[in-house]
Simulated scan of single mutants.
Amino acid sequence: MEQYLIWLIIALVLLGTEMMLASVYLIAFLLGALTASACAFFGCSLTIQCTLGAIVIIAGVICAYFYRKKIALLNNKISLDNIDEDQIVFVDNILEDGTAKV
């Protein structure tokens, strides 16, 4: 079996895993495997395939890290945990057990 087909099979396995887990980081590994497959298709040595694949994976993981950090910051701004924060409330009645309806 040719090397580029092995890299494509690895890329397809990573794609399927990414679809099940929804982890942004696996996309970097998928792109690295596709890069290595393209290198193998054009006749590069295994060392060059692995090196270029690793470079793409490292760059992709760094990009994914900053992307997830940005998404986390956006989600904190739109948090539904404190939806009534800074809102004026009116207490209608305080019950005997100390609870109140707002």
Rank of each mutant, 00 (worst) to 15 (best):
L14I: 11
K77P: 06
L8R: 00
L74I: 11
L34I: 08
E96F: 10
E96M: 09
A38K: 00
A54Q: 01
G16S: 09
K101L: 14
K69V: 12
Y25A: 15
L80H: 04
L30G: 01
F41H: 06
T47F: 15
L5H: 13
T35Y: 00
D81M: 04
Y25D: 06
F42V: 12
C44L: 12
S45V: 06
C63I: 09
A64T: 07
L15P: 00
A22P: 06
I9F: 12
V24W: 02
W7V: 07
A38W: 02
M19E: 08
C50F: 14
N93Q: 12
L46A: 11
I6V: 14
I10L: 09
L34V: 08
I58S: 10
Y67M: 10
E18C: 08
A11Y: 02
I88M: 09
L31I: 14
T47W: 15
A36D: 00
C50H: 07
L52N: 01
A54F: 05
N93P: 01
Y25K: 02
V61Q: 03
E96Y: 08
T51E: 03
A72C: 09
L46G: 10
F90Y: 14
S23G: 11
M20N: 08
F90G: 06
E85W: 05
A100Q: 06
T35Q: 03
G60Q: 01
I55M: 07
M20Q: 10
L46Q: 09
Y67A: 15
I88D: 08
Y67F: 12
D97Y: 10
Q87S: 12
C39G: 05
I9E: 07
E85D: 10
A22S: 15
G98A: 07
A11G: 07
I62A: 14
F90T: 11
N93E: 12
Y25L: 12
V56M: 07
N75C: 15
I62R: 04
T47V: 15
C50K: 05
D92R: 07
Y67D: 11
I71E: 09
I83T: 04
D86W: 02
Y25F: 13
V24D: 03
I88Y: 06
L12W: 08
G98C: 06
A54N: 03
A59I: 12
V89Y: 07
